[in-house]
Nucleic acid binder design. Structure first.
Lengths: 226, 226
DNA sequence: TAGATTGTTAATCGATTAACAATC
DNA sequence: TAGATTGTTAATCGATTAACAATC
């Protein structure tokens, strides 16, 4: 059963962070203008793709020159809602949870992890990359009080649905689910599931496809990454 | 500039691991047959999507009953090349690298991480989730000898291209790139880039889209996850 | 038989690509 | 001016969805 409207322009949305990253490098390098051509460079994308994507953000360019780097950054951030902050709590401080807490770029891109929880009493009280780990028992009270926009689920698949239900009952509506099981939430909830193996499946299929073309496949130029 | 042929049926390929996971649960539960309807359940997919995907794998079903669970698992694994093993080396044992090394399911899904490298001499010699960390200096000799299919890059973006070049010169052709910069490889190379922020961008866009629909949006049923 | 499901063909929808006039 | 680029409209391509006969 398919339900809930799909995300508009999903492929374009997924490309935005890469543009932002490159734009911030260009900005640091002192580039006042950035053209779609320049942005597409090294990204294995045609410039028309970039131009179409940027149009979604409402960015206005200058013919023959490009887009003002700063304006473009702001347009994309606004489009993604990264001009403000999304507040998040993170549940589960296993190795993946710890890796996410150590990820430097979240703050720069509008995600603020305010609270961290774990069920395991041996981990409670620890500091992980500067984040105090709270006991799950504290979750309802603390989450009801802080009202995070997003919960980042790094718990085992077997407890993911239960934790999601608890968070939903405390008012959380956005879920970034890194567990290996699917979760269901109420009609006003939103879920983004990350499956590490999806990427590996894609890589595997690419390798197999290449092998089938024969070791001496079509030798155009290359450099794909997505 | 777009180059290199795109992956065939990319969306279908990305759904395969989820099918495999569910099938393995069903198999453990003693289900001899699995139907597309049953597989689609709880996955926020229509059964027709599943049926089409399964057709790609060449799986043969039984009208009115479904697919033999074991046969279906094998078909999907064969389709993805997961009936054998892909051998991999992993470079960079920062928090992300360590999280990947701790990921239990890789072995079950055809990925075997044989060698681990790090540049930082303080980390060399450590055991990370049972993997000995070798000095980068050893990489050329060891990689030339073991000929891994895949290199998993968990290094900083600034060194990603250099490490990829080194690996390519040692014969590695598959790259799973977790760094935040794009890499370019030769025409017979294949790259899969994972950008954590892409998923966050998607979640952000979903949240914004929902908000625009108004707090009392269309109240169909729900439960999306992708 | 009735109900469920597969396999397949056709219709729809959306994303990518191409083309080009307008502009700096 | 010449060259580069934007903005926009149209064409193509591929994925999703619908429909339904055949089968167990």
């Amino acid at each position: 059963m398919r339900t809930s409207e799909r995300l508009q322009n999903a492929p374009s949305v997924r490309r935005m962070p890469t543009y932002l990253h490159k734009l911030s490098l260009m900005h640091s390098a002192g580039d006042v203008y950035a053209s779609a051509t320049k942005l597409a460079e090294g990204l294995s994308l045609d410039s028309i793709v970039v131009r179409k994507d940027l149009q979604l953000t409402g960015a206005q360019g200058v013919s023959g020159v490009g887009y003002k780097t700063v304006d473009l950054i702001n347009s994309i951030r606004r489009y993604l809602g990264w001009d403000g902050f999304f507040d998040a709590c993170l549940v589960g401080t296993g190795s993946l949870g710890r890796a996410l807490l150590g990820y430097q770029h979240f703050m720069a891109y509008g995600l603020r992890i305010a609270q961290v929880f774990d069920r395991d009493s041996r981990l409670v009280g620890n500091l992980v990359h500067g984040h105090y780990v709270h006991d799950m028992i504290m979750l309802p009270a603390m989450v009801r009080c802080s009202c995070p926009d997003i919960a980042i689920l790094c718990v085992p698949g077997s407890s993911a649905q239960g934790v999601a239900d608890l968070l939903y009952s405390c008012g959380v509506r956005g879920f970034w689910n890194f567990s290996d099981s699917n979760i269901q939430v109420g009609p006003d909830g939103v879920v983004q599931r990350e499956v590490l193996l999806d990427g590996f499946a894609t890589l595997s299929a690419k390798i197999i496809q290449k092998r089938r073309q024969g070791p001496a496949g079509p030798s155009k130029e290359d450099g794909d990454g997505r």
